[in-house]
């Protein structure tokens, strides 16, 4: 058995607490590396990693690539439009080509839930999920948790609100699984039809009143309103969304309490969050970005590096 209890990193739903803790602990050491003048370690020298992206991504792909390069791995990038998959090319075809190139790890983003698990049956490389449709985005979940841990020094008992379109959000699902595993308390807030039926079974609360959630929470994770994911007319207007769920400057001013603000990016400034809040002292959004590199280095190192 390696440093983690499993050979791939596919989801936070089934990942044990000890793995999540180890990833966070190890990420702190890589945070130090990222603060050095020479931000590189030789841990994965000679290892081949492919970033296989079937969906547009700038931030996640850059973050992975940087993490891989900081660990001295050899990196190739493969971007395919998701339309090539619907045109009849099977996932297996695409992936076996890459497999023939003898990769040690595949980082995959794909628009379909479960595609990353399926990939593990087609290749014998280590597979890391960089987002599989509306299922999970586990490395995002880890970087969110690391950022909270860094800010508060603990996760257990921490009160975290997740705000937005929960139904279509892989970030929300990974946050829910990871945070509940680590003993945090989670409240979901968003338009009722964009919160999955029966989500309380996952051990979270639902509250449609954002002001109540702000009063309750230690931190808020504000989700991007992904218009492209939605059918027509799911959100009546930007004005209405802002009034009921927006993390606006005015709303934050009315709450006396200090509360930490996170956002997975990219932000729709002026829609789900105001610039004043996003750029203000409560926000740890830029810490999240740097922690993202550290967490991905940590996961790559624990899966591909030497056994400790």
């Amino acid at each position: 058995m390696g440093n983690l209890t499993r050979e791939h990193f596919l989801d936070l739903e089934t990942a044990p607490r000890q793995d999540l803790q180890k990833i966070i602990d190890t990420a702190y050491t890589f945070r130090e590396v990222l603060d050095r003048p020479i931000k590189k370690v030789p841990s994965l020298t000679g290892r081949n990693i492919v970033n296989l992206f079937f969906e547009n991504s700038t931030r996640t792909r850059m973050s992975f690539e940087l993490a891989e390069k900081r660990l001295s791995a050899d990196v190739i990038n493969f971007s395919a439009s998701s339309s090539s998959l619907t045109k009849g090319e099977s996932l297996k075809d695409t992936v076996q080509n890459i497999h023939s190139m003898k990769m040690d790890a595949v980082i995959m983003r794909h628009p379909t839930p479960g595609s990353v698990l399926k990939l593990t049956r087609f290749v014998d490389a280590t597979v890391i999920n960089a987002g599989d449709g509306t299922h999970e985005h586990p490395t995002q979940g880890m970087l969110d948790m690391m950022s909270l841990h860094q800010k508060f020094g603990r996760l257990k008992g921490l009160k975290v609100g997740i705000v937005g379109d929960i139904l279509h959000s892989r970030v929300a699902l990974s946050n829910i699984f990871g945070l509940t595993t680590m003993g945090a308390k989670v409240t979901l807030c968003g338009p009722p039809h964009l919160i999955p039926r029966g989500v309380e079974d996952l051990g979270v609360r639902v509250d449609y009143n954002i002001d109540d959630v702000i009063d309750w929470a230690d931190a808020l994770n504000v989700l991007r309103i992904q218009r492209e994911r939605m059918g027509v007319g799911l959100i009546p207007s930007v004005r209405e969304y802002r009034d009921f769920f927006g993390i606006t400057a005015e709303r934050m001013k009315n709450h006396k309490k200090e509360i930490v603000i996170m956002h997975p990016g990219p932000m729709n400034r002026g829609v789900e969050i105001d610039s004043v809040v996003a750029d203000g002292g409560q926000a740890i959004i830029l810490d999240q970005v740097l922690n993202g590199v550290a967490v991905r280095m940590s996961i790559l190192y624990l899966l591909l590096g030497p056994n400790e």
């Binding site: 739903e13 839930p113 479960g114 599989d132 449709g133 509306t134 299922h135 999970e136 892989r170 699902l173 999955p196 039926r197 029966g198 989500v199 079974d201 996952l202 059918g231």
Partner: peptide
């Protein structure tokens, strides 16, 4: 809609439209 499996706890856990 774009549903893939029965709507229930599993569809929520898997992120598959129910």
């Amino acid at each position: 809609g774009g549903g893939q499996i029965n709507e229930g706890e599993l569809s929520t856990r898997l992120g598959l439209s129910g």
